[in-house]
């Protein structure tokens, strides 16, 4: 799918994990760089210019969240967190620091590949594609129009903004704070109920079965993820 092989930097202090990732990713045509510590990782980032980072949070010399923060000071390179830490607070901290996605160990290779694809796509996105289609749901960002099975759905301006932010980040997990900031503004970061109510309303309007949402997925304790069209 790419013209040149994508270079992925795997940062993990466990050799077994690096070995497994290298083997699995090499067969998918990626080029693999390895780092066993945050220091090595930061050096490799400047020297080797990878296209994507898979980062463990529990590094011997620096916490992974701190690594994300430092990298984000000068680079927009996609970062996928791969960690055994499954507490929601850890996930939110890493995502809010600027990580693109978060996977907990143990993980399936399929899922990791999907996340890599999504992250790479968002990173390489040059211009916003005007139309987003998912099943029979069609979102025309240029015309601010949402239809399901050809039928127009009336959304409030807030609902539309919310849907747009989610669609533009389809496949990526967005924390509550990130969505609130982008839709309502930084002053509304604590107003979680606004988000909850609007998500609920939005689901009732666009989901085929609001009791079992398929488009807007909840990441418990973290945020929401809009289903990527390629995963349906």
């Amino acid at each position: 799918m790419e013209e040149y092989p994508m270079r992925i930097l795997v940062v993990d202090d466990e050799r077994a994990i690096r070995r497994y990732l290298r083997a699995s990713l090499l067969t998918r045509g990626f080029e693999i760089l390895e780092a066993g510590s945050a220091g090595e990782a930061l050096q490799s980032l400047t020297n080797d210019r990878p296209d994507l980072v898979i980062l463990d949070l529990g590094l011997p010399d620096m916490d992974g969240v701190e690594v994300v923060r430092r990298v984000r000071e000068w680079s927009k390179i996609p970062i996928i967190i791969l960690s055994v830490r499954d507490r929601e607070d850890d996930k939110v901290a890493a995502l809010d620091a600027g990580a693109d996605d978060y996977l907990t160990k143990p993980f399936g290779m399929r899922e990791l590949l999907a996340r890599i694809r999504v992250a790479a796509r968002h990173a390489h996105r040059t211009a916003q594609e005007p139309v987003f289609e998912l099943g029979d749901l069609r979102i025309d960002l240029a015309r601010r129009e949402v239809t399901r099975a050809g039928e127009r759905i009336a959304l409030t301006p807030t609902e539309y903004d919310l849907l747009r932010v989610m669609v533009q980040n389809a496949g990526k997990v967005l924390t509550h704070n990130q969505i609130l900031r982008q839709v309502w503004g930084a002053a509304y970061e604590e107003e979680a109920h606004l988000l909850r109510v609007n998500i609920s309303n939005l689901r009732k309007k666009i989901e085929p079965d609001p009791d079992r949402p398929r488009f807007i997925l909840t990441e418990p304790g973290v945020g929401y993820r809009f289903q990527d069209r390629q995963e349906v």
Binding site: I199, D211, R212
Partner: peptide, 17 residues
Amino acid sequence: VHKRPCDVRDLIGTALS
């Protein structure tokens, strides 16, 4: 326990998903 106001429908939907 971090108790926050939660949407029950979302709760059940998430468990199902």
